[in-house]
Design a protein around this nucleic acid. Structure first.
Lengths: 153, 153
DNA sequence: CAATACTTGACTCAATCAGTCGGGATTCTA
DNA sequence: TAGAATCCCGACTGATTGAGTCAAGTATTG
């Protein structure tokens, strides 16, 4: 029931890109500095997000990253599933990463039925929140007066 | 967002003890066999549950384990918290295992506010379910005709 | 006393996490 | 067209955790 450091960094980076979404790109270095993330590690993470289709990159001098889809098209559930695997606490209630467990009859397993509820609760929240929603929250929480580049994520 | 094998075994064992709750004790060996859990590993787990006050033990020939409190006094949240640590996906929204994170202002962190909701959703389910509830579910799911010792957990 | 069970602590082995590093490929700009 | 800036890729490391295993010990009962 845990989000890894890697996952948290990814969310922060995506949020920065969401807040500055537009035709231009943002450098890894800037994200790393602003969010206090080890640069080399962030490179690795963004590369991963790229091959998963969440972001796109531009190489060379004026290079950097931007979101591939619109911020409203990327749910936290998608991101976290890609980074951390199943959202469900046990494999036997996971929809996207289902794995049979050792109990003799899943349909009659009481533990499974509780974990099913936990899964649904988690997914309910995470499917409903997109990067765009997160950006709205940032603006709500921090008021309208801040310079866009200074937002605290 | 994951329940370890250890955690699952613990729940299964507690559920067996819940189903057979009474003055007598149940042997590790029986639980291990019935639930297909490595015996040595289960010993370790039950020992842990004992020092946490969930179960009590009796040594010697007619020895074994039983629940210390009534099955309705033990919530899944308690058990999992003890076994796996925080229920919250990130430390900065955990009530019982709070840990400050690296962001400059927690109250204005959008990621945190979402994770707060996730935590509340998880805890909402898990606090509401006790071992007794689980036993009811077992009976509901499996019908009233099964021999108490044969319940499939 | 012998058999049965729990008790305790150490130990292994593999996988995952959180990074780090070196060097390569592109692209812009002077 | 050289050189700087930037992303790209794979390998590597060190610490921690997960899932067990094992040996020897202690208590209880018949």
């Amino acid at each position: 029931m845990k989000l890894s450091q890697r996952g948290e960094y990814a969310l922060r980076a995506l949020l920065v890109m969401g807040m500055n979404h537009g035709p231009g790109v943002i450098r890894i270095k800037d994200i790393a500095q602003q969010q206090n993330i080890p640069r080399r590690f962030l490179e690795q993470i963004l590369n991963d997000l790229k091959s998963a289709g969440f972001v796109q990159s531009k190489r060379g001098v004026a290079g950097g990253y931007r979101l591939q889809r619109g911020p409203d098209q990327i749910s936290l559930a998608d991101i976290i599933r890609h980074l951390e695997g199943p959202l469900a606490p046990v494999g036997c209630v996971s929809v996207n990463y289902y794995q049979r467990c050792s109990c003799p009859d899943e349909d009659k397993c009481a533990i499974r039925s509780v974990m099913q509820e936990v899964r649904d609760a988690i997914v309910g929240v995470l499917e409903g929140v997109t990067v765009a929603h997160m950006c709205d929250r940032v603006r709500d929480l921090q008021g309208p007066l801040v310079n866009p580049l200074d937002y605290v994520i």
